[in-house]
Design a protein around this nucleic acid. Sequence first.
RNA 1: GAGGGCGUAGCUCAGUCGGUAGAGCAACGGCCUUUUAAGCCGUGGGUCCUGGGUUCGAGUCCCAGCGCCCUCACCA
Length: 507
Amino acid sequence: MTDPQQVQDRKIKLDKLRAMNVAPYGHRFPNVQPLATVRASSESLNLEPGQHAENTTVRVAGRVMLHRPCGKLVFMTIRDGTDDLQIGLSKAAVSPEAFTIANKLLNLGDIIGVEGTLGRTRTGELTVWATSLTVLCKAVQPPPEKWHGLKDVDLRYRRRYVDLFTNPQVREVFKQRSMIIDAIRRCLVERSFFEVDTPVLQPIYGGAAARPFTTHHNALDLNLFLRISPELYLKRLLVGGIERVFEFARVFRNEGIDTQHNPEFTLLEIYQAYGDYHDMMDITEAMVAAAIERIGGGFKRQFGELELDFTPPWRRATYAELLKEYAGVDMNDEPAVARKAEELGVLAKMKAAATEFVVPDHAILVNEVFDAMVQPRLIQPTFVRDYPAPLCPLTRRKPDDPNIALRFEAFVAGCEIANAYTELNDPRVQEENLRRTLAGERRDETMAVLDEDFVLALEYGMPPAGGLGVGIDRLVMMLTNSASIRDVILFPLQRPKAAIDEDVDSV
RNA sequence: GAGGGCGUAGCUCAGUCGGUAGAGCAACGGCCUUUUAAGCCGUGGGUCCUGGGUUCGAGUCCCAGCGCCCUCACCA
């Protein structure tokens, strides 16, 4: 396939540079100052418009975003990871080669290094007046349009590198993502939590209800799963005496993709020995507060049309209270729940979806009513605790009420961002629960099996503990006002284009 | 899985009733010493997502497919 005309033009310039003995792909360019630093430090110079400070040598580097040749002057705007800054290059002040390069051989998207002095133009624009110019990288692909940037959503994800250097607000979201994760990590370390890495490749998967990805190890001739959760390994570490443990776990779930689900995502899991789910609520609030303090913008934040208020403490309510409040029914009033479900058309919907329809029991109906009437209205950060036990078969029951599970979920903007339990540590009960759950699962090629080593670990003794999972991507969405999970994941999964598919097949 | 929308130059987008494929930016050549999405003069650039069909004639209408987005469903 022949190159587009603009790529050909740029390759011609590449050859012209080489003919001038100029390396189009440069090397080390030491001692550069970030553009934001240059801008900040220029304040103290109090430069007047038109003024030029001869004794202020700076070295900067960046990508050419705008290029304005103007006779015997060339103005450029370059961008680095911190800021944009204008470069001015006068024919009288640089070598003839440098002027030719700047005037004729540079294109938008090239990366250059500049040494020069600081000044302001007549209109007051801070400018590095170049004394020398170094080509650091000639770009052969043209960047997107300078005003609108890269808009095509598909291309933005497939070529995130272009998205990042053309759309600064995208870079800002990922910078905030990094700061959020760092703030959470520090918050946990400060509380004596211990960060670990547990296996991604697992011979037996567990810890959540989700379909896994499968893979294979050649040397061991072993089928493996990509983890759907780190839970069973982190609990082994509780047995091992790591009493406060966490992992930022990349997990993989072989399920649908939408604005809140990506096949791989980051799940923070935390376990605290001798604690329970109340401790996990405190930690959730503390982590989110630390994250917000780091990225700034305050506890009251815009999310789409909504204004969210993350000021701790968040509302803590029981499942039953919220059901009463939003659906107007008593959780234990079976006829009332059934009537409500009927009103909502839940049964009809379930009949339409199910292959073999089984009359749902009370807990299922409660759950349907909750999902339809309560969850979408949990806009402000809310902890929902004490779930109906049948909905959480693996969870410890409330000591004085076996119908209640010691679990909470945190919702923001109607979206689940955290899930926590007072963990079960009786190996016999845990094993029974696991077996019962597995028996109820549909048989297929990726069927879950009982992790007997996990049960063995519990038999050695796991301290009572609180456990928490936080959907980091969703939390980042909320805090950065991003509508789609793909906007907070650098390289979300996209179906490859046909040509790429062929390449894979031919290998 | 169902419904809806989108796919045209490197990028952002127009394209009327079916009648020779358009603009801005970018690119190329020229002019210009204070520009700010610089300006002026000139030039080149198209698998109109793919494949069929209807038609004298299809970017436009029909069918099928591919990719992406949205809503719903599924999935915790």
